[in-house]
C-alpha cells in the first residue's frame, strides 16, 4: 500500500470511530491527565514555595529541579520498574504493568517540569510583590496562594509543557506499562509497536489524533492568553 492509501486508511479509522483506536486514545488521555493533575497538585505549590521563600539550600533545590526537568524517560521507567517490581519496595502493591504504574512514571517525569517552570514564573512575580507583601504582613501560606492566583494566566503555559511531556512520552510507560493490549497500550507505545509491525494505518491514525490533541490544547492556551481579560490581569 502506498502512502496515500495509508493516509486514507488512517482517516477511515478515525472517521469510523474504530473501537480499538479509541480505546487506546481514551487510556492515553486517562493516564496523561491523571499524571498532569497530580503533578500540578505537587509541582505548583512546590514551585511557588521555592519561588517565594528564601531558605538555606534554596539554590541547591532549584538546581535539582532544573536537573530533574531533563530526566531521561527510560531511566525514570527503570527506576519506577525497580520500585514496583515484585522484589522492589512497593512490589506488594502489584502495580507493575498497570495504568497506575504508568501514571506514577509520568508524575516523576512531569512534576519537576511543572515545579521548575512555575518556580521561575512565581519568582518573577514575587520580586514585584515582595516589598508590598512585607508591608501588608502577608503570611507565608497566603503569599503562596496569592502568587499562584495572580499567575493564573501564565501558569497554563507551564501546565501545557507538562501535558506535552506526558502525552508524548514513550520510554517510561513502555517499561512500567508493558504495552499490553487493552490494558496498558497508549498512543505513543501503540505507534511504536504498530510501526514496527508494519500496521502503519493505525500508527498514523494515532499520530494524527496525537497531533490534533496537541493542537487543541495549544489553541485553548493561546485563547486564554489572548483574551482582553488576561491582558488586564497578566
Amino acid at each position: 500500500m502506498n502512502n496515500d492509501g495509508v493516509l486514507l486508511q488512517a482517516a477511515r479509522l478515525i472517521a469510523e470511530w474504530d473501537p480499538a483506536l479509541f480505546e487506546i486514545v481514551l487510556l492515553s488521555l486517562q493516564v496523561t491527565m491523571s499524571a498532569v493533575v497530580i503533578s500540578c497538585l505537587l509541582g505548583l505549590p512546590l514551585g511557588a514555595a521555592v519561588g517565594a521563600f528564601r531558605f538555606h539550600g534554596r539554590g541547591a533545590v532549584i538546581l535539582i529541579l532544573n536537573v530533574l526537568m531533563g530526566l531521561p524517560p527510560v531511566v525514570v521507567g527503570l527506576l519506577v520498574y525497580l520500585v514496583l517490581s515484585a522484589s522492589g519496595p512497593l512490589g506488594v502493591l502489584e502495580l507493575l504493568y498497570t495504568p497506575t504504574a504508568m501514571i506514577i512514571a509520568q508524575i516523576v517525569l512531569v512534576t519537576p517540569i511543572i515545579a521548575a517552570l512555575s518556580r521561575q514564573v512565581i519568582e518573577d512575580l514575587y520580586l514585584e510583590y515582595a516589598e508590598q507583601f512585607a508591608s501588608f504582613g502577608v503570611s507565608r501560606y497566603t503569599r503562596v496562594r496569592a502568587l499562584l492566583w495572580d499567575a493564573r494566566y501564565t501558569l497554563p503555559t507551564v501546565v501545557l509543557a507538562g501535558v506535552g511531556r506526558a502525552v508524548a512520552e514513550v520510554g517510561a510507560v513502555m517499561i512500567v506499562g508493558g504495552n499490553i493490549n487493552h490494558v496498558t497500550r497508549v498512543m505513543t507505545t501503540a505507534i511504536a509497536l504498530e510501526t514496527s509491525r508494519g500496521d502503519l494505518e493505525l500508527a498514523l491514525a494515532l499520530g494524527i489524533i496525537l497531533l490534533a490533541l496537541a493542537l487543541v490544547v495549544n489553541v485553548f492556551v493561546m485563547a486564554l492568553r489572548g483574551t482582553r481579560v488576561r491582558g488586564a490581569y497578566a
Binding site: Q132, D150, A151
Partner: peptide, 11 residues
C-alpha cells in the same frame, strides 16, 4: 506604606 510605583495585584 505606599510606594513610589504602586504595586497592584493582578485582580
Amino acid at each position: 506604606m505606599v510606594f513610589q510605583r504602586p504595586v497592584m495585584l493582578r485582580r
